[in-house]
Design a protein around this nucleic acid. Structure first.
Lengths: 136, 136
DNA sequence: CTGGATCCCTTCCGATACTG
DNA sequence: CAGTATCGGAAGGGATCCAG
């Protein structure tokens, strides 16, 4: 139980805020949230839209987001079954941030790729260190 | 080579923008960037400030950030050796976003934790499905 | 002090098969 | 259609020892 005066500090290993950052940082969570930006989507729609995600990871990611109160899961008792996912208010509050992430990624992609090429070329030019004598 | 008219699309599996998102999503990258927000830091300072990070992960994370052009690495030829890390302009452009992430995490931590408790309690109440007959 | 190299255990994650 | 169950390979990540 944290007292009112204490702010959560992600630099402390046991602070829950680090778990929150981890979830946001999750590879698929960002893409799922972005896909739900325009409104609710069916399970299959999500799977189709997010190229390369496996059934397992999609389900697992959705469960995680649901558990954290970021998305809702609505089961329609019909045949065939239909399940809709949508962002909660909490989820929407995250949307701005995540959109910003996407925007940053797309606008600075070229810079990052250029930096990588430069770095890799530099590393290749480095001598193998004073020669590594086989140990012993 | 992408033509000018094509925007990077993180929903495509092979788009580089997804790699960028992955780096941001990296567990330690966010914390390292945040630590460098106030200016350059020595290797040891970073290690001390980010509770729970191992030497290996710190070094690995810094290399990744350096490769992507987000941080600079400055070696001072002294004894004992001293290495300073600092954000590049590109790194600074990311800082706003990452700070937003931290802010969101800390302000909504309580909501997330409450949602988890609710969800977990709900799951426990669920019946073990129509009974699992030992297969066959 | 700042790491590089290794060992090794854990977690992630994709592929596949099966159920309501 | 929307999952769950399971297996095995790949990657993540900590501990330790060593070098410049």
């Amino acid at each position: 139980m944290e007292s009112k005066g204490m702010r959560p500090d992600p630099f402390q290993r046991d602070c829950g805020s680090r778990q929150v950052i981890d979830r946001i940082g999750d590879r698929w969570s960002v893409l799922v949230v972005l896909t739900l930006a325009d409104g609710e989507r069916r399970y299959g729609e999500l799977a189709e839209h997010i190229d390369g995600i496996s059934q397992k990871m999609l389900t697992q990611t959705l469960r995680g987001l649901e558990r954290d109160g970021l998305v809702t899961r609505t089961v329609h008792a019909s045949v065939p079954p239909r399940v809709d996912y949508a962002l909660t208010d909490l989820g929407h509050s995250l949307l701005d941030l995540v959109s910003g992430l996407e925007a940053w990624a797309t606008t600075h992609l070229a810079d990052v790729q250029a930096a990588r090429v430069r770095y890799d070329a530099e590393v290749l030019r480095r001598p193998p260190a004073t020669t590594r004598p086989a140990r012993r």
